[in-house]
């Protein structure tokens, strides 16, 4: 796999006058899992929020630099197209509380103009199955999304993101609010999904990165310190700071 799915060049980001990313360069292969690790406040969440242009929706937030996804410059596309090409799962499960399970998954499709009921239903089933949730909810698709457990809600959010058939799936600490069993299921899911999607996952849990990522990037204070195959970053890092972090000496 020599092709490049996501290419980031000299990416800077600001909150007001605070520069939180100082020029990030990174390349990501298609159908791989890239873990972003680093201590709190190192800019890892901001980084993935720049990939789908969500960062700029914060008041006072600004971005400079380039991001290409599948060869297209994200910052020259319409943000709505960008976000349809790049799905996102958030730290806390955020299903839309006023909607049913079905409507949560179907909403993105409705935005995209899919009106045909049969096609909607087929696609909702497919997405829920991909998110390993179908068997648990198939008999109660029209119950409120808030009736699900936390882990189920997070898988619902994954299904919601997958329904619009993105190329890339961004995950912002998707298991930090979940119990160990739900966490394990999501990790298994990530392993399956990478056969179809390119996944970028932010995590503060280094074991998780080691378990699921092909490539790991270590961020510190808004700089990308080191990036490489996961096994190398965890066993033979080039940078002293990476070594200190992965061996638990700080952070």
């Amino acid at each position: 796999m020599l092709s490049i799915e996501i290419k980031v060049e000299a990416l800077h980001a600001w909150y007001g006058n605070d520069e939180v990313l100082h020029g990030i360069d990174l390349a990501i292969e298609p159908r791989s899992v890239t873990a972003i690790i680093g201590p709190s406040g190192c800019g890892k969440s901001t980084f993935i929020r720049c990939l789908n242009r969500l960062h700029e929706t914060n008041p006072g937030a600004r971005v400079a630099g380039h991001v290409w996804v599948g060869g297209e410059d994200v910052y020259r596309m319409d943000p709505i197209d960008v976000r349809r090409t790049i799905g996102m799962v958030f730290q806390r499960p955020n299903p839309f509380p006023t909607m049913s399970i079905f409507d949560n998954v179907a909403l993105g499709l409705k935005f995209a103009g899919v009106k045909d009921r049969r096609r909607l239903r087929a696609r909702v089933e497919e997405s829920l199955a991909m998110a390993a949730l179908w068997d648990e909810v198939k008999d109660r698709l029209h119950q409120p999304a808030m009736s699900l457990s936390g882990g189920q809600q997070q898988r619902l959010c994954i299904a919601r993101a997958l329904a619009v058939e993105p190329r890339v799936l961004l995950m912002d600490e998707p298991t930090s609010a979940l119990d160990p069993i739900s966490t394990m299921r999501i990790e298994e899911l990530v392993q399956n999904l990478k056969q179809t999607y390119t996944i970028v996952i932010v995590t503060h849990n280094m074991q998780q990165a080691a378990r699921i990522a092909d490539q790991t990037a270590f961020f510190l204070d808004g700089h990308l310190i080191e990036v490489g195959p996961t096994s190398k970053v965890f066993t033979k890092p080039d940078d002293k700071r990476t070594e200190d972090y992965v061996s638990g000496r700080f952070g």
């Binding site: 349809r84 996102m88 958030f90 509380p97 993105g108 935005f111 919601r160």
Partner: peptide, 25 residues
């Protein structure tokens, strides 16, 4: 805010975010 961002991340326009997600909430 995460309800709003959930909608935006799905590719909603501002209007869709407001009428489909924020106002029902």
């Amino acid at each position: 805010r995460d309800i709003h961002e959930g909608a935006l991340a799905l590719g909603a326009t501002t209007q869709e975010m407001i009428t489909h997600v924020a106002l029902p909430y």
